[in-house]
Design a protein around this nucleic acid. Structure first.
Lengths: 211, 211
DNA sequence: TCTGCCATGTAAGCCGTTACATGATTTT
DNA sequence: AAAATCATGTAACGGCTTACATGGCAGA
């Protein structure tokens, strides 16, 4: 997952490790806390030796004006890296649907085609529906032998599941009708999905870098 | 966290590993998927050699009727284990407030006193509020350079945070006024916390096993 | 008979963190 | 001059999963 995230960010712009970490934190802040350097730097090394990214060694010499900033290593994605990114993004293993995996994939949705997006959204929905059914079962079958706190926790969890399923459903509907991923938020009532019109046939060029 | 959960479950009834795992799955289903045996059994061994739990060896001999079920090892919590449990449950490290830690603590809330419950609920709230502020910052400061999908993910995350804060607030209010942890769910409007009256001065005997 | 659940365990490995080590640059 | 933040790394360790190994018991 880290690999996918790094490749995705480097596709937007070359960066050095420290910068990457901050970007990771803001873009994936919903998903997970900031990655530690103890993971980040070795991973960058690994991606480099695999050929997915290139290291641009410290900017010594050239430009005496002294904006040199010391030895920062700027990483840039390679052509092979772009291929790798596309593979990872499109692949649908079970981890694609867990919280972290789904989050990262979703973050880079604008770099995939609609079919992939739908596949992932539906896989995620199935996953959450399973979790939801599990909770419903527990509440129905063992609900009375659970104490008030445990019960409340389960109810809250169930609520979150139902909410996420509804969210996914809206996103799926939007994808199918070629709309942008805007979802009615905030004070709007649950009842019906209001027609959200924003960006018309927007299909943001699925980034095929290879011929 | 696993340790706390095991100790908590064994306080309700003696159990063998397999059973424990299922209980863990239903009680903590909201929090995390089922624990693997590769973690569970070694942990039980560890808790045993630490003296928190006792192993009741396979029920060989006695009762020829053959309901023996083979060598199941039944674990029972010891007096020291109960002390340990109380310590773990009441302690408030940073991991007490992350998703997993909070979930486990909350599950065993009925075994603590109100002061501890309030401390933990408030700590959790602070944690989520921080996350929420982080997301708001991102949306306010960098919202426009984020693509539609990333944006939607952040919005969804922010929504979840706001919801959880409200949930915690209700629970805190209930604790302070000595009510049961019931929270208005489902179709009820957000606006005001309706007076939820259920169990009056219920204070479920904070389980002090030691004099 | 064979599938599936009950039941316990070990070994290898993955993914990540914390703590440590180092040093430059910027801000106060 | 000190403190904060930028910047890169290594080593040790922790928690958990997977895969493997083993075997009893129940029902289709």
């Amino acid at each position: 997952m880290l690999e996918l995230a790094i490749l995705g960010l480097l596709q937007e712009a070359p960066m050095h490790g420290y910068e990457l970490r901050k970007e990771l934190a803001t873009k994936l802040g919903t998903i997970r806390a900031a990655i530690s350097y103890g993971t980040l730097y070795p991973t960058l090394k690994r991606l480099h030796s695999a050929g997915w990214i290139s290291e641009q060694a410290p900017e010594t010499d050239i430009v005496p004006p002294m904006t040199s900033k010391r030895g920062r290593i700027v990483y840039k994605i390679t052509a092979e890296g772009k291929e790798r990114f596309a593979d990872l993004l499109a692949q649908a293993g079970p981890e694609t649907y867990d919280d972290a995996g789904f989050g990262v994939h979703f973050t880079f949705f604008s770099r995939t085609d609609r079919a992939t997006r739908l596949r992932i959204l539906e896989g995620r929905r199935r996953r959450i529906e399973e979790r939801r059914e599990g909770l419903r079962d527990v509440l129905a079958r063992a609900g009375d032998r659970l104490d008030a706190y445990t019960l409340e926790l389960q109810r809250h969890g169930l609520d979150a599941c139902e909410r996420e399923v509804r969210w996914l459903e809206e996103l799926i509907t939007n994808e199918r009708s070629g709309r942008a991923p805007s979802v009615a938020t905030g004070g709007t009532p649950d009842s019906a999905a209001e027609p959200v019109v924003e960006a018309p046939p927007e299909e943001p060029a699925p980034h095929q870098d290879r011929p």
